[in-house]
């Protein structure tokens, strides 16, 4: 019991410290790192509750992918300086934040202090699931039997989101900067004035190349240079 209490207090402290850091630090990267600390604290709490799989997924997905993505955006866009804090994007968002924050805190306190059965009518789960079956197996079985429809719907939702992101990110305007990425077949579609241009003996001798082999050994780079 003492070990569990100690673990809970330490992990709780890390969670809270990280959460405060997310709000209070001025530097965006420090904010993101504080978020990682909070996520790790939550992962430790999961392990204390014997939810090993959740803890691992917490670290892999949230710390390993999502915050990395945040940091990536911060680095690439260079928003590591303190932003303009004077102007609110939404009118009255600070007041609303305070009101809703206090309301959620009050609700949680009421639910916590009024005992385990008041809110939903059924007793809250307070003990770890004592079972010999590993939690990975239990989660897997629940996901692919009882909740398989919800699981599939979620998968479809994620796929739609990915497709939507790709469609939104596609832009056809503006100059293309990665010409060299296209292979030969794509270059054919560029409507270059090829054989007549490339096979032109004058140009080939000007480049110092052998006029005979120039026509059939043209690789895409040569084509491009020749067209310029």
């Amino acid at each position: 019991m003492r070990v569990e209490m100690f673990t809970f207090l330490l992990a709780g402290l890390i969670c809270l410290g990280g959460a405060l850091g997310v709000v209070l630090f001025r530097n965006t990267v420090h904010n993101a790192l504080s978020l990682v600390a909070t996520l790790f604290g939550v992962a430790v709490l999961f392990i204390a509750q014997e939810a090993y799989f959740l803890a691992a997924v917490q670290v892999i997905v949230y710390a390993g992918a999502i915050v990395i993505l945040f940091l990536f955006v911060i680095m690439l866009l260079g928003v590591d300086r303190a932003d303009q804090m004077g102007v609110d994007p939404i009118v009255g968002q600070r007041t609303a934040a305070v009101v809703f924050g206090v309301a959620i805190l009050g609700l949680s306190l009421v639910a916590l202090l009024s005992g385990p059965e008041v809110v939903t009518g059924t007793p809250a789960t307070t003990a770890a699931l004592s079972s010999d079956i590993p939690d990975v197996n239990q989660i897997g079985e629940a996901l692919f039997t009882d909740y398989v429809f919800a699981f599939e719907i979620t998968a479809v939702l994620l796929t739609i989101a990915v497709v939507g992101a790709v469609v939104l990110a596609r832009r056809s305007d503006g100059p293309v900067i990665d010409e060299d990425e296209f292979d030969g077949t794509a270059l054919d579609a560029l409507a270059l004035e090829e054989p007549s241009d490339v096979g032109d003996p004058d140009q080939d001798t000007a480049d110092g190349a052998d006029p005979g082999s120039g026509a059939d050994e043209t690789d895409p780079d040569d084509l491009e240079e020749a067209s310029r």
Binding site: Y52, A56, I60, A63, D135
Partner: peptide, 9 residues
């Protein structure tokens, strides 16, 4: 229990 997931994490 999570063995190899720890490696990925």
């Amino acid at each position: 229990q999570i063995g190899i997931l720890l490696v990925l994490a």
